[in-house]
Simulated scan of single mutants.
Amino acid sequence: MPEVKTAGLPIGKAQKAAILIHGRGASASSILSLSNYLNLDDFALLAPQAEGNTWYPYSFMAPDLQNRTALEKSISTLQFSWDQIISAGIKPENIYLIGFSQGACLSLEFASRNAQKLGGVIAFTGGLIGEKLLPEKYKGDFQGTPIFIGSSDRDFHVPATRIKESAELMKKIGADVKTLLFDDPEHTIRQEEIEWVNKNILM
């Protein structure tokens, strides 16, 4: 059974929930600290822990076979948290996915594989996963789900071209996508991103 850390409101008492997904080398505990900056006071928070602190071994744009086994296991780990939330009676339109770096890529990938009306997807430095983007992998309709992607315009790990491609693909399956690309080389979460998300998605 996947390890999942929790915070915020008890899941049985919350109307909204967020799955927070950590980056490579980080942990469930570290991503939960984002709740100090985001408007998540009335949420149940679930943070799954990746085995060995890594969701998949190679770049998110590596040949698909290299990451496939680990990636599918990671998707199923997210599904475990999702199922816990649904079982508690929280509807998909009140569920949010929030990730940084590897976790941002995974949040976008998980949401897009079975697109539906969600509360929102917040991806701090990420894009859809794969050597090439294959539209046939993604099905469903986001029905206007707000999706945010923020990043450096020249991030070492996540090229701006992949962010833009991902945004276009998700728009085609019904998402309302906002990208903010910053003129700096930092692989981080910026105050401007926090403020935009709080104002526009986590109001």
Rank of each mutant, 00 (worst) to 15 (best):
M1T: 11
P2H: 06
P2Y: 05
P2E: 14
V4F: 02
K5W: 13
K5D: 12
G8Y: 10
L9F: 10
I11V: 07
Q15K: 08
K16I: 11
K16V: 11
K16M: 09
A17N: 07
A17R: 03
I19E: 01
L20W: 11
I21N: 08
G23H: 05
G23K: 10
A28L: 05
S30T: 15
I31E: 14
L32C: 08
S33I: 12
L34N: 07
L34I: 14
S35Y: 09
N36V: 12
Y37P: 11
L38N: 07
L38S: 06
L38W: 12
L38D: 12
L40N: 10
D42P: 12
A44L: 09
A44M: 08
L45N: 12
L45Y: 11
L45E: 08
A47C: 04
A47S: 13
P48Y: 14
A50R: 01
A50M: 13
N53L: 09
T54S: 15
Y56E: 01
Y58R: 15
M61W: 15
M61D: 13
Q66D: 13
Q66S: 15
N67G: 03
N67C: 03
T69D: 15
T69G: 11
L71R: 05
S74H: 04
S74N: 04
I75R: 02
I75E: 02
F80Q: 04
S81W: 00
Q84H: 08
Q84A: 06
S87Y: 15
S87A: 11
A88I: 00
I90H: 06
E93F: 02
N94R: 09
I98T: 02
I98D: 03
G99H: 03
F100H: 04
S101D: 01
C105K: 15
S107D: 04
S107W: 08
E109K: 01
F110N: 01
F110R: 01
S112Q: 00
N114Q: 14
G119A: 02
G120A: 04
G120W: 03
V121D: 11
V121W: 00
I122C: 06
G126D: 03
G126W: 04
G126H: 08
L128E: 00
G130Y: 02
G130F: 05
K132D: 10
L133W: 00
E136P: 10
K137Q: 14
K137E: 15
Y138H: 07
Y138G: 10
G140F: 02
G140S: 04
D141A: 00
D141Q: 01
Q143H: 05
Q143V: 05
G144A: 03
G144R: 00
F148E: 02
D153A: 13
D155G: 02
F156V: 13
H157Q: 14
H157W: 15
H157I: 11
P159I: 08
A160R: 04
A160K: 07
I163P: 09
I163G: 12
E165D: 13
A167W: 00
E168S: 10
L169E: 09
K172A: 08
I173L: 01
G174H: 02
G174S: 04
A175I: 05
D176M: 14
D176P: 06
D176T: 12
D176E: 05
K178I: 08
K178N: 13
L180A: 15
L181T: 06
D183T: 08
D184M: 10
D184V: 09
P185H: 05
P185Q: 07
E186Q: 13
R190F: 10
R190D: 11
Q191S: 11
I194F: 06
I194G: 00
V197S: 04
K199T: 05
N200C: 06
M203W: 15
M203Y: 15
